[in-house]
Amino acid sequence: MRDETLEPLPKNWEMAYTDTGMIYFIDHNTKTTTWLDPRLCKK
């Protein structure tokens, strides 16, 4: 489920979907991926 109230992704981040429809996030700065939304992981 998407939460439209979240702010935009940080610079150089992208949201993508797996072949089965699961959301993951791509950090183009470090060339890594994560299941965790970077907008929710702020310190």
Rank of each mutant, 00 (worst) to 15 (best):
M1Q: 06
M1V: 10
M1G: 12
M1S: 12
R2I: 09
R2G: 12
R2T: 14
R2A: 11
D3F: 08
D3K: 12
D3Y: 05
D3T: 09
D3N: 09
E4D: 09
E4M: 10
E4S: 12
E4W: 03
T5W: 06
T5E: 12
T5Q: 14
L6E: 13
L6P: 11
L6S: 15
L6Y: 08
E7W: 06
E7R: 11
E7K: 10
P8C: 05
P8I: 08
L9A: 01
L9Q: 03
P10E: 04
P10C: 03
P10G: 04
P10M: 02
P10Q: 03
K11C: 09
K11H: 11
N12R: 07
N12M: 07
N12H: 08
W13C: 02
W13L: 02
W13E: 01
W13V: 06
W13K: 02
W13F: 07
E14K: 06
M15Q: 14
M15F: 08
M15A: 13
M15W: 06
A16L: 06
A16P: 00
Y17P: 04
Y17M: 09
Y17V: 14
Y17W: 13
Y17T: 15
T18V: 02
T18R: 01
T18S: 09
T18W: 02
D19C: 09
D19L: 07
D19P: 11
D19T: 11
T20S: 13
T20Y: 06
T20I: 06
T20D: 12
G21R: 07
G21M: 03
M22P: 02
I23K: 15
I23P: 14
I23R: 15
I23C: 14
Y24H: 02
Y24D: 03
Y24V: 03
Y24F: 09
F25D: 03
I26H: 03
I26Y: 03
I26K: 07
I26P: 00
D27K: 00
D27Q: 01
D27G: 00
D27L: 00
D27R: 00
D27N: 07
H28G: 06
H28A: 05
H28T: 07
H28V: 06
H28P: 05
N29I: 07
N29S: 10
N29T: 12
N29A: 11
N29H: 06
N29L: 09
T30E: 06
T30K: 08
T30L: 07
T30G: 05
K31W: 06
K31M: 11
T32M: 11
T32Q: 09
T32W: 03
T32A: 07
T32N: 07
T33H: 03
T33N: 04
T34G: 02
T34Y: 00
T34H: 04
T34A: 02
W35L: 09
W35Q: 07
W35R: 06
W35K: 05
W35A: 06
L36K: 14
D37I: 00
D37T: 06
D37G: 03
D37P: 08
D37L: 00
D37Q: 03
D37R: 06
P38N: 00
P38Q: 00
R39F: 02
R39N: 03
L40M: 11
L40E: 15
C41W: 14
C41Q: 15
K42I: 10
K42R: 13
K42E: 15
K42G: 14
K43L: 14
K43W: 12
K43Q: 15
K43G: 15
